[in-house]
Design a protein around this nucleic acid. Structure first.
Length: 833
DNA sequence: GAGCACTGC
């Protein structure tokens, strides 16, 4: 069977014949250009061709590879960043690191005569490095735009900047603004991911000849991410994650420490970025009831895709329009803008990069903030040829397999293949098939090395994609959409895109979330394709037809339209944006979703009957937890509960991915069951988590060995301890930690009951009772739910349950389950209804 | 007796 199939792959390196069922319609430029709606694609191709020669001639381009062309060391996830904050990004090429020293170690070797950093002058080697980097900076596409950008922000408070991949916007824009007369304080630049914030800060520090913020009081550059704050009194450029800035905005509503906020990667449209933009809009327009700033806050919104119109409209009169229309449709706003506005400078279609700033009045008012500047900066990308399937396929694992071997036989090395798949199971399935087929290859054919890549994969296995490809070998990286944004895989010239991805969707009616395999959007398809053209010209095989591409949605549905909104709304209320139905949303969630979330917050007593935020709600909003978990924590601090320390342990464990390792074989599973038995508690999963965290904390000899013995993830437990520490700090700040709790003050039975009562208070909508037929039905909603097989209560019958997770995967499952008494549940429900 | 894309405070 295997042999037969192998013979379908010709050995002479010719493409597969029609008999194999794989044939591709070639993507032709001319044909495509005439087609409307595919313009973005066409434009990229055109421009790519134009830039290819330039790019390849560019000297020193390769040396910058550790950063992408924006000077951004794109997010290889170093999970234990806080443990190794100065660890070089995993895929940095050794030669691209500063030679002979690191920024971190050098200061200790200061010669006595050299100026000390604390005296305000950076060490000379930093200045040398700064000067050496200047030519590279000057060659970035954004460099010629420095003056227009400065001029635009002198005139207006808001700038929308579209910069394609490789334009250099993330590193250069803050540096352009630093010397401006209005810029007397700090510039904040937000990033969706920790690694990006950290590595951008490092890069900009190098370019500015500065130390990192926590190394010297004079250091000008810093970053701030959870568990890792590297800022100091002299920090003028501060990279932070979106979540970090949101927390700051709750504590300092007028953002008094900043002169400007640069919101980067807006096109990714995280819930956090949507909230930040809404708050900034209110702040810039003076709508929010915050203390007025003495100087206006400058706002730069940066996006990779040309969504300028929507953003301009948003900061212009967006609020009004969006309320009138209920929901802004992308197409709608586009046509409106183009009718009422002149051209906004160079569109992507043009290759010429003349001055691109043009201001245009949205509507004349006395306020200058109604004027928004826009700017487009081209990127640096090699051309990528797109190849579609002639016929749609159901079995993309099979199609991918054929194309992998077709490329392998036909295309010369080097040139690795990146395959986008939906999840772990399809990845592992394809990996197995590749290895089977590769065994049958002739010895004169180069080898194939299949490497899986998904977030749940252990760190060391993920690292394998960065190790140099062995001689006469082609890597095939099988990835989820982690490779779309979070990880840049080096060496890729061929992309195979299955056109699907798993998307989480919250169902308001049922109050549960489900994970669905859905077609990706055009913008995601373009993003995936672009991964083939980062180092050289490439090819993208799409496992769908050209028609299939054309019927894709233009862009991925923003997260705010498909998630549980209770956290977002609590944040809004905590910031004083009381009227959530009229909040300036870039995309307005359906009314039903907003109301569902408001009701949920009311049930948690985070809101008063009037809809105003309660004192409890304010505390919950300041905790790095979902509203439900926040509520559990606040409940535990009440004197009559008095079980805060236990509950912090449980919540910390609930805040990380599974702390119990997932075992594959039956044998290992049984082994794990036996080893964990001493941790399991009949009260359920929450008390089991508590015991596990307690035992781990008590372990004084070797915690790693303890974890191995109990089949517990050491990495997850380290994370639990970090979160625990942070929660305890915040509890003390919020005056929650004033209880007289003593470990021996009450019986363990009473403590368990108190802990469960707190969990019940937070998760009151996630409760179910046992029915006579043995099934469970939720008490608020009357839906059938089953205890997930991963629970210690699986297969057990108890009169009522409370669960911390409610997911739908073929069937409604309760995960993280505790047994409770039915009258406890009824009591709480009666009290809140 | 099931199955889990990806971030982040």
């Amino acid at each position: 069977m295997l042999k037969q199939k192998q013979q379908q792959y010709p050995e002479d390196g010719q493409p597969l014949s029609a008999s194999t069922g794989v044939q591709f319609a070639e993507f032709t430029k001319g044909k495509k250009r005439k087609r409307k709606g595919a313009e973005l694609e066409t434009v990229t191709l055109e421009k790519d061709n134009g830039r290819a020669g330039k790019g390849s001639q560019r000297k020193g381009a390769g040396k910058l590879m550790r950063f992408n062309e924006e000077g951004k060391a794109e997010g290889y996830p170093i999970k234990d960043q806080e443990k190794a904050p100065v660890q070089p990004i995993a895929h940095r090429k050794p030669e691209s690191r500063p030679k002979g020293h690191t920024i971190e170690s050098q200061p200790r070797r200061q010669q006595p005569g050299n100026p000390k950093p604390s005296q305000g002058n950076p060490p000379t080697h930093l200045l040398k490095r700064r000067d050496a980097l200047l030519p590279t900076r000057k060659s970035l596409p954004i460099w010629p735009h420095a003056e227009p950008i400065r001029a635009a922000l002198r005139k207006n408070n808001v700038l929308v900047l579209t910069g394609e991949t490789g334009s250099g916007k993330s590193t250069q824009v803050p540096q352009f603004l630093l010397s401006e007369p209005w810029c007397t304080k700090t510039i904040a630049i937000t990033q969706p991911r920790r690694v990006a914030a950290i590595s951008l800060a490092r890069r900009v520090a190098e370019e500015m000849g500065s130390l990192m913020g926590n190394q010297s009081p004079a250091a000008k550059v810093g970053y701030s991410v959870r568990f890792d704050n590297a800022t100091g009194p002299g920090t003028r450029v501060k990279f932070l994650t979106e979540g970090m800035l949101l927390q700051e905005m709750l504590r300092d509503p007028e953002m008094s420490q900043y002169s400007a906020v640069v919101v980067d990667e807006v096109h990714e449209r995280s819930v956090n970025v949507d909230l930040i933009l809404g708050f900034l809009k209110n702040l810039v327009a003076g709508i929010e009831k915050v203390k007025k700033r003495k100087t206006p806050l400058k706002v730069v919104v940066m996006s990779a895709t040309a969504d300028v119109e929507a953003l301009v409209q948003f900061f212009g009169d967006g609020v009004k329009t969006s309320i009138e229309n209920g929901k802004i449709e992308a197409g709608d706003s586009e046509s409106k803008i183009s009718n009422s506005h002149v051209s906004i400078g160079d569109k992507p279609e043009k290759r010429d990069t003349a001055k691109m700033i043009e201001n245009f009045d949205q509507k004349p008012t006395e306020d200058s903030h109604d004027q928004i500047s826009t700017c487009f900066v081209e990127g640096r990308q090699y051309p990528v040829k797109t190849i579609y399937l002639p016929q749609p396929t159901q079995d993309w694992v099979e199609s991918a397999l054929k194309i992998i071997f077709q490329i392998h036989y036909k295309e010369p090395l080097p040139g690795d293949i990146l395959v986008f798949l939906t999840g772990q199971d399809t990845i592992e399935g394809l990996e197995k098939l590749i290895n089977e087929y590769a065994q049958g290859m002739d010895s004169d054919v180069p080898k194939l090395l299949a490497l899986p890549l998904f977030a749940a994969l252990p760190q060391h296995a993920q690292q394998r994609i960065f190790t140099p490809t062995p001689h006469r070998t082609r890597k095939v990286i099988l990835a989820t959409n982690i490779a779309e944004t979070s990880v840049t895989v080096p060496g890729v010239r061929f992309v195979i895109d299955c056109g699907k991805s798993k998307i989480k969707q919250f169902r308001n009616r049922l109050g549960l979330e489900s994970l669905l395999v859905k077609p990706i959007s055009k913008s995601a398809a373009i993003q995936r394709k672009g991964r083939a053209g980062r180092e050289a010209a490439g090819q993208c095989y799409r496992l769908y037809t050209e028609k299939g591409y054309e019927i894709m949605e233009e862009r991925t549905t923003p997260e705010i339209l498909r998630c549980d909104l209770s956290h977002a709304i609590l944040t809004m209320k905590a910031r004083g944006a009381d009227d959530v139905l009229n909040f300036p949303f870039l995309d307005r969630p359906p009314r039903e979703a907003l109301e569902k979330a408001l009701l949920q917050l009311l049930h948690l007593s985070a809101l008063e009957e009037t809809g105003a935020i309660s004192e409890m709600g304010l505390k919950m909003a300041k905790l790095p937890l979902t509203p439900t978990l926040g509520r559990v924590l606040v409940e535990a601090a009440r004197p009559e509960r008095d079980c805060l320390l236990d509950v912090v342990d449980i919540i910390s464990a609930l805040s990380v991915e599974n702390i119990f390792l997932n075992l594959v074989t039956e044998e290992r599973k049984e082994e794990a069951e036996a080893a964990r038995r001493e941790l399991y508690r009949r009260e359920g999963d929450h008390m089991t988590l508590l015991v596990t965290v307690q035992r781990y904390s008590e372990e004084r000899s070797d915690r790693k060995v303890w974890c191995e013995k109990h089949f517990v993830s050491h990495r997850a437990m380290q994370n639990v301890m970090n979160i625990k520490k942070q929660l305890l700090q915040q509890c003390s700040q919020l005056k929650l930690l004033t209880s007289t709790e003593l470990p021996a003050s009450s019986s363990s039975e009473a403590k368990t009951q108190a802990g469960l009562a707190c969990i019940l208070r937070g998760f009151i909508s996630n409760t179910a009772r046992l029915m006579p037929d043995g099934s469970y039905r939720t008490l608020m909603g009357n839906q059938t739910v089953s205890i997930h097989p991963s629970s210690v209560l699986f297969g057990r019958k108890t009169e009522a349950i409370v669960f911390s997770e409610f997911v739908f995967t073929g069937k409604a499952w309760a995960r993280g389950v505790s047994a409770v008494q039915l009258d406890w549940v009824s009591e709480v429900i009666e009290a809140i209804m």
